[in-house]
Nucleic acid binder design. Structure first.
Length: 306
DNA sequence: CAGGCGTGGCC
DNA sequence: TGGCCAAGCCT
């Protein structure tokens, strides 16, 4: 099954799963990064915090914030006892600050509904704010050693190439990808958990989006995409991200001021971050609507106390 | 379900 | 230089 079209992902895997597991896991044993959330003394809370921070954010930027976060809030109940605005402030410049709010909300729910312990069930994790299909599987697998298909952008890219023979996965996760991921999952629970971490790391370090390093890939000899001559991406253009001049940029500037402030900020100070008044007002309203900013009397604003 | 949502480093 | 990219989630 070389030079396979994208639809081939719906069929049985081209490769015997077992022929993939051993080399990828062996490669992981030799080359896995020593990341703090992978250390044996890391509890489920640490894993969960790392997963929130790593959503759309590179490891290098997460590391220092992660360490400070866990030192300050070593258990979910510690974070739950804080004002949500403190989570937003401690989030710093990681980006997508709604994640901080959702992590705080998740800590609150864990404290109230699960006695302060991160739940083990995928369905219970999925019900927490900020946790979707990927993060629920990741926490269940990495923190609790369970057998779940962990489909992040790295794994999806590895599977697209190795099994489907295409350069990039579809824009949105498809049923075919889930089916393939389940078919490739080792039956043995601890092996499945190891495989999840290993296949993700392979995508992060070797089978990267650009400049993939097939010479260091443990399954290069089996990779459908490489065997097909690495054909260029055919399908619809991949979703890009605009930023300059968008509301997002304005929101970022407004929130940066509020994060640094130790006292409520006058509207006049916020007005200074962006020239255009209509967009500026829309951005501020959006932050308030999202619960990231709390309006007070006398045109004063602050990070949310509740 | 396509689009909104931050930030900074890299080639 | 600037578009692309980085362990997604939510509506």
């Amino acid at each position: 099954m070389t030079a396979t079209p994208a639809t081939s992902a719906t069929t049985a895997p081209a490769i015997a799963p077992a022929a993939l597991h051993d080399p990828v896991i062996a490669w992981f044993d030799a080359h896995a990064r020593d990341l703090p959330w992978r250390r044996p003394d890391t509890g489920a809370w640490g894993v969960m915090v790392s997963e929130f921070m790593l959503q759309q954010t590179p490891v290098a930027r997460v590391l220092p914030v992660y360490e400070q976060w866990l030192a300050r809030w070593p258990r979910p109940a510690d974070l739950a006892a804080e004002a949500p605005g403190e989570a937003v402030r401690a989030w710093g410049r990681l980006g997508y600050p709604r994640r901080a709010l959702r992590l705080h909300g998740a800590a609150l729910a864990i404290t109230e509904r699960f006695g302060g312990d991160v739940p083990r069930e995928h369905s219970q994790l999925l019900a927490l704010p900020g946790i979707g299909e990927y993060t629920a599987a990741a926490v269940a697998s990495f923190a609790y050693g369970q057998r779940h298909a962990v489909l992040d952008t790295n794994v999806r890219r590895v599977f697209a190439r190795a099994a489907a023979g295409i350069q990039y996965p579809p824009n949105a996760t498809t049923a075919a990808e889930r089916k393939l991921a389940r078919a490739l999952l080792p039956a043995h629970e601890p092996t499945a958990a190891r495989w999840a971490a290993a296949s993700m790391e392979l995508g992060a370090l070797v089978c990267t989006s650009k400049n993939e390093d097939c010479a260091r890939c443990p399954i290069a000899s089996q990779c459908a995409w490489r065997l097909a001559g690495k054909p260029a991406h055919q399908g619809p253009a991949r979703r890009g991200q605009t930023y300059a001049g968008t509301d997002r940029q304005v929101r970022g500037k407004l929130l940066a001021v509020l994060r640094e402030a130790v006292a409520p900020v006058p509207l006049a100070v916020l007005d200074a971050v962006w020239e255009e008044p209509v967009q500026r007002a829309r951005a501020l309203d959006g932050l308030v609507a999202d619960g990231l900013v709390e309006p007070m009397a006398d045109d004063l604003y602050r990070l949310p106390l509740t």
